[in-house]
Design a protein around this nucleic acid. Sequence first.
DNA 1: ATGAAAGCGCTAACAG
DNA 2: CTGTTAGCGCTTTCAT
Lengths: 341, 341
Amino acid sequence: MDQVTSIKEIAQMCGVSVSTVSRVLNGKSYVKEDTRNKVMEAVEKSGFRPNLLARSLKKGNAKTICLMLPTFGNLIFPEILRGVNSIATQNGYTAFFNITDEHPGSEEMAYNEMRNLQVAGFIICSAIGDENPIYRIREDGVPLVLVNRFQKEDISRLSTVSVDNYRVGYVSTQYLIRSGRKRIAIACGDTELYLYTERLRGYCDALRDAGRKVDEALILQEPAEGHDGFYDMTKKIMLSENPPDAFFATADPKAFVIMRALHDLKLQIPHDVSVVGVDNVELASYMEPPLTTVGQPLNRMGEEAMRMLLDQIEYKKQYGELPPPENRVLNFDLIVRKSTE
Amino acid sequence: MDQVTSIKEIAQMCGVSVSTVSRVLNGKSYVKEDTRNKVMEAVEKSGFRPNLLARSLKKGNAKTICLMLPTFGNLIFPEILRGVNSIATQNGYTAFFNITDEHPGSEEMAYNEMRNLQVAGFIICSAIGDENPIYRIREDGVPLVLVNRFQKEDISRLSTVSVDNYRVGYVSTQYLIRSGRKRIAIACGDTELYLYTERLRGYCDALRDAGRKVDEALILQEPAEGHDGFYDMTKKIMLSENPPDAFFATADPKAFVIMRALHDLKLQIPHDVSVVGVDNVELASYMEPPLTTVGQPLNRMGEEAMRMLLDQIEYKKQYGELPPPENRVLNFDLIVRKSTE
DNA sequence: ATGAAAGCGCTAACAG
DNA sequence: CTGTTAGCGCTTTCAT
């Protein structure tokens, strides 16, 4: 019985005009109790569906937003997605999601497609090396919030939400130092990503502040193959003359790979080597031994981002332009488990 | 310079009619070389964006589809999502995603919202216990494909894509039997989900075919708390009089929990107890020891589902009704790693 | 090969 | 409180 396709038919069924039907549907203007009931009833029993495309076309704005994610290779992104989605839904917005696969090109394509779909704004976890498309968005006057992944230069110009990644690196390293570790290696993600530069900087400063010097040999940079490459690097460095007795992995999946390599080397964690990760992905607690890691409030980051986007959309509607950028920094926790001692 | 908002403005700039512009934009009908170029140029340099809402409204169908997922608690869903998304994009479709959180109510809400947005079809991994909303979809004449999760009754009436879950259970159990295990426990997911019923049935039959009898005590059902509940159940059964020497976990996350419990019990895997999972989630290979598991072609399942949906959409456009349901069954592999011997 | 015009379903003045 | 009407941006007959 899905034949009723328009407000017009409802109007005819009730012997009223389309605007009356529209009015009861939107509940803005006053309608006589009787007429309202009559219309409501017709709507109910006919299974009428308001055509949101028509509404959006007319109003000039769609209640949709777009969330761009670089990958699902790291579980943090589904987590962020959940946060965004829940606040979006609560506010009558529907979200498009886009996986850019770390490819700025596909980010740009997606941007165009989404603009054509008239989305109200974007929330982006940038792909690696993609500054260009992103700036364009704000220049186009489109609401935008960056989450977790963004460039240093973005901070002054765009709205962001993240943790203080410098401190993430600092705190993790300091913890390792205090637990008595002498040679702490870092498995660092692609430093094209500002967050990894920051974590690395925190690592270096923590070392220096403890009166140690930074040993270049202990800085493992993520190879082109992605985090799997840390497997060989771990084996190699552990077999070297002066192996580390701890790893600070700048993300949990890298810690997983490192732990795998250590196990294969028959080394004891944490006895021989401590490992700490970042993100507190669910699986971190299932590892053997359970992984000490830094917990980011990923879900909340998604929620905050969506709230900020909503604010931007609202502001723009009122003042005709985007509000000044806002940078929100959330707290994190070091979650100590058995992979360190 | 994003002032050009309509085809009409382009038309004026070029001194042609809107229909001509529309024609060159759609490339269907013939347009004189000259005019085409003129229009193209104006489109390029003005940064014109076709309003897809208007197009869809006019054509009566949007190039969007909706993918409903129950959760991101299991990594298989992002994998399926990737498959769906890639085929969708290739075919000019944009996907909405929806996380139902195992809540049939939110599934229904999402369905309504999405219908209002005029999506062309749905791909669903059902939430637990949600038959009702789903049947409604086909009755409404809306293209629909079920992936991985669906009910037994769905098979004859709806299009599905999955692996043969009975065989998944059978093969895994048989493998454990052949590797010399005497008491094989099963950690079974919620049997409200047909796929788990099937895996359980496969487990039972493999046991019987090997001349053993099924011991109820070895059938661990997923408790209400979700797979974390297997932690206590594993400890308890291992401490019982007659503990198992192997676990068939009907999904990798359950295997992770079980391994954690075994480690905490200081039991050796696989020496004391073997473990096999299902899904071959990326992390499975990072576990200590790496987890033997059944690999489903999740990405391909997503791709197939999207292709089937496209077929349905096409068919409906031509014949005005949905094609008969089609059930596609894909192959799987047992991936042997160190958690079994 | 191109233009004029109708209309997709809806909202929002405007008028009464 | 309600109806009439214009029009959002686009596609698509139907003419020419």
